[in-house]
Design a protein around this nucleic acid. Structure first.
Length: 847
RNA sequence: GCGGGCGUGGUGGAACUGGUAGACGCGCCAGACUCAAAAUCUGGUACCGAAAGGUGUGUCGGUUCGAUUCCGACCGCCCGCACCA
């Protein structure tokens, strides 16, 4: 029999699917819906192994659910705005638009070679004017609803390139491109009011049952809810100072009050105090580099002001400015209780402030309990605290809160770590913010009828700063309100905005509103979303925020975008280094007996750890080369085999060859079954071998169905191997049973190796397509056997096994077990004290 | 420091809610076919032991008739957050 020609076959079947528009999703359907989505790619120009893993998993689910009778939506698009296009434009002198669309065309071709069952009629790129037109409408809808506001923000400003930089673009305090020292500047910027949704976003995490626990925990920590008390200190200068604390119980242990260097009061005092101003500048320097923060010494500056203790106005606390107090959390001011907070303790020890324990552990004596170099943060009873003495921490918290609230000096509040989302970017390759700045009317939204605000045809990258800002033709506009000359907002939206609602747009990508509610309500939420763990917080949190905001505006009915989330692991490969320490690419390497040599010279190479494929370590394998050699089905099968999908997988040549062998094996097994019995022959099990084969077939159907539903692809793969092995054992089975097994093998592997399945299915004499064939259903009667073999233990140690009738009673099983030679030998004449029989599982004899 | 996860053969990994540890793949070994090789097929493969048997899921202890699974302590690795009051 001829070997399977993957290349030819794959091209052929992809053509057949295309011609029949097999994966174009019908608008109306009586079937239950299933929306399968993988995180859409950035159009870098070529797909990498990570993409093939991600999209293969999604495709398996899409094909599996389609076969099970679901109406499946499985679309694809492009996250097409962003920096790489700007860099390419600047470096190569091409337009970012052309560069992006050329990359999209190249990647689309590569993805199509994978044989993915995607509805390509719904494809769009976020840089399509039609898409960002709707995004601008959405922005204005959010603006009208109060979800968008303009505020001042501290940003990383590169004074040479005259642009804002993202945090990761600042290296050692300098711009990554210009090398200039980055300044912190206060700029007026647009914000999305994600903090309005803090509570909802947090609470709803509990409803996301099909999300990884890990991601939910990360989001929970990111939102960072803490309950506490906000209250006021009266200051010696007559002013008031708000502080936030989660430990109001420790108020009598207070020994100072501290302000953030960025606190308005600190700033105000610095205007008349040169030394304080210098101190604040000093704090700012150490404040940026992340690694240093950990080791940074606690520094403080005594303002000379004092604060009166709320329960004893004669008790004065020093007001310090301290480098460890954050302006962005709470009120930017705290009271320090050194005995029960490590940071406060470090600070107090350095500046000689008093340390009074007010919470004493239950096993310690309040009279002698003291705090040395470690703050006590555990539970205990209050002491040295007047009316709080003897209370538990919880009781004391409530008492202090109640008293301060009653006195009008404070209130219980909930604080969040989450901050509003700054979306302004001084970048030319993004969605223009549809706002106009008028010298008379101020900030005015562009009227809906004047949308979209299109990007200019030509973007000049030779100017300093944002090309949109330098493009006077583009920038100049008129005020929609008064008609006077005005300028456009030259900022664009953070590209995370683009990916925050694309899943909703896919449900009707041509709608002339951002979403078509009817379509969105039919399809949303996404039933299975698949992507990398690196998006655990930002993308997924932003998408949840957008969905909630759209929900509030009545645009979609679902509050959550993704009912099921799966985060797949990375694709890794061994690394190689030559004797000079240079990385060597796998295609220059020859491996012999577990050692690596340079193919060109034969020089020995050092084999390093398996790491995520990356250009810098040169350990990249190009998917198109693998497809070229083995075909798409082999690479798909590899991506699903062995390693659980959430873990990192290592690409190996040997593994790929193993997959290729299996492709051939399935082809051969199907070919052997071909002429045995006509299509549709009812299988019978009139002899032992046929019965065993039929049982193996139906066990495989049951197992693969369950495994695929739970995304346990590696186990589904193992089940397919087992069925193939059973077919080899069942060569003597009757023709109908062999055909049944072959058809099951083909259909069960069809979602994973779809081209091979079509070829085999045709070979088996079918006129229909495997992709349109219903999923096989197992016969429960064939999962049961007449006899079962169970293990027999003596004192918990396995000694032998016994084969009994499946419906044998415990007494029968017990008697059979006790009669076994192995048991008699192990008992060595002793009488069994107790016999435990777990039906169908085990017998344990206690001697 | 805080939070989360993970430790099983030469190797990737199976083992459902405590019930035959090592499914399935890779690798390796042997055999068949072949002039030979490749491909393919068949068998074997946790460790010690000639065998009987013994030992084994990071380490130590506990619960249990029975523990990879549950509990406690420790060791090691990975990920996330990090002066959040």
């Amino acid at each position: 029999m001829a070997r399977y020609n993957a290349k030819e076959s794959e091209r052929y079947w992809q053509g057949v699917w295309d011609d029949r528009a097999l994966f174009v999703t019908p608008v109306e359907s009586e079937k239950p819906k299933c929306y399968v989505l993988e995180m859409f790619p950035y159009p870098s120009g070529r797909i990498h192994m990570g993409h093939t893993r991600n999209y293969t998993m999604g495709d398996v689910i899409a094909r599996f659910r389609r076969a099970q009778g679901y109406n499946v939506l499985h679309p694809m698009g492009w996250d097409a705005f962003g920096l790489p296009a700007e860099n390419a434009a600047r470096d190569k002198g091409v337009s970012p638009r052309d560069w992006t669309y050329e990359n999209i065309a190249a990647m689309r071709t590569q993805l199509k070679m994978m044989g993915l069952s995607i509805d390509w009629t719904r494809e769009f790129a976020t840089c399509d004017p039609a898409y960002y037109h709707q995004q601008q409408k959405l922005f204005l809808d959010f603006y009208k609803a109060g979800f968008v506001y303009r505020g001042e923000a501290d940003v990383n400003w590169d004074p040479v390139d005259m642009t804002v930089l993202a945090n990761e673009q600042v290296i050692d305090g300098r711009g990554w491109r210009s090398g200039a020292l980055v300044e912190r500047r206060k700029l007026s910027q647009w914000f999305f009011k994600i903090t309005d949704f803090s509570e909802e976003l947090l609470n709803a995490l509990d409803t996301l049952e099909r999300w990884p626990e890990k991601v939910r925990v990360m989001q929970k920590n990111w939102i960072g809810r803490s309950e506490g008390l906000k209250f006021q200190f009266a200051l010696s200068n007559g002013g008031k100072l708000d502080v936030f604390t989660t430990r109001p119980d420790t108020l009598f242990g207070a020994s100072f009050v501290a302000l953030s260097p960025e606190h308005p009061l600190a700033q105000e005092l610095a205007q008349k105090d040169k030394a304080l101003a210098d101190f604040i500048v000093e704090c700012r320097k150490t404040g940026t580099a992340e690694a240093e923060i950990e080791k940074a010494e606690k520094l403080g500056y005594d303002t000379g002001l004092t604060a009166a203790h709320p329960f004893d106005p004669s008790w004065k606390l020093k007001v310090m400015v301290a480098n460890f107090v954050l302006m962005g959390y709470g009120t930017g001011a705290i009271f320090g209780c050194p005995a029960h907070d490590q940071r406060d303790l470090d600070f107090a020890r350095k500046y000689g402030l008093c340390v009074t324990p007010v919470v004493v552990p239950s096993d310690a004596d309040p009279k002698t309990f003291s705090v040395g170099t470690e703050a006590y943060t555990g539970p205990g009873k209050l002491a040295n605290s007047q009316f709080l003495d003897g209370m538990t921490v919880e009781e004391a918290k409530a008492e202090v809160a109640a008293r301060l609230e009653k006195a009008g000096m404070g209130e219980r509040t909930v604080n969040y770590r989450l901050r509003d989302w700054l979306v302004s970017r001084q970048r030319p390759w993004g969605c223009p913010i549809p706002m106009v700045h008028c010298p008379i009317c101020g900030v005015v939204p562009v009227p809906e009828g004047s949308l979209p605000v299109l990007l200019p045809d030509k973007i000049n990258f030779s100017v300093r700063g944002n090309p949109l800002d330098a493009d006077l033709d583009w920038k100049t506009s008129v005020c929609p309100s008064c008609g006077e000359a005005a300028v456009r907002d030259t900022d664009t939206l953070d590209t995370f905005a683009d990916s925050s609602w694309y899943f909703a747009r896919f449900t009707d990508p041509t709608s002339d509103t951002p979403v078509n509610k009817q379509a969105a309500d039919y399809w949303l939420p996404v039933d299975q979303y698949i992507g990398g763990i690196e998006h655990a917080i930002l993308h997924l949190l932003y998408a949840r925020f957008f969905t909630r905001a759209m929900n509030k505006l009545g645009m979609v009915s679902t509050p959550e975008p993704f009912a099921g989330l799966f985060t797949q692991g990375m694709v890794c490969h061994e690394t190689y280094k030559d004797d000079e320490g240079n990385w060597v690419s796998p295609d220059e390497v020859e491996k012999k007996g577990g050692k690596a040599f340079l193919r060109s010279s034969g020089a020995a190479l050092e084999i390093g750890a398996s790491e995520k494929m990356s250009k810098s370590k040169k350990n990249v394998i190009a998917p198109e080369e693998i497809i070229d050699v083995y075909g798409a089905d082999t690479i798909r099968w590899f991506m699903l085999s062995d390693t659980p999908p959430e873990r990192d997988v290592e690409w190996t040549d040997a593994g790929a060859e193993g997959c290729w062998r299996f492709v051939q094996r399935v082809w051969r097994l199907a070919g052997e079954a071909e002429g045995l019995a006509p299509v549709g022959t009812a299988p019978t099990a009139d002899d032992e071998i046929s019965k065993a084969l039929r049982q193996a077939t139906h066990r495989a159907i049951a197992a693969v169905t369950e495994d695929l539903a739970l995304l346990r692809f590696n186990r589904a793969v193992a089940q397919a191997y087992m069925l193939a092995n059973a077919m080899a054992d069942g060569e003597k089975a009757n023709p109908a049973a062999r055909r049944e097994a072959a058809e099951a093998l083909v259909l069960l592997t069809a979602p994973m190796m779809p081209h091979l399945a079509e070829a085999c299915w045709q070979g088996l004499g079918h006129k229909t397509l495997a992709a349109q064939t219903p999923w096989p259903v197992h016969d429960p009667a064939l999962l049961k056997s007449d006899t079962i073999t169970i293990a027999v233990q003596v004192n918990g140690k396995r000694r032998c096994e016994v084969t009994v009738a499946a419906d044998a009673g415990n007494k029968t099983v017990e008697a059979a077990a006790l009669a076994l030679d192995g048991v008699i030998r192990a008992l060595d004449g002793a009488a069994p004290k107790k016999v435990i029989v777990v039906p169908g599982r085990i017998v344990n004899i206690v001697a």
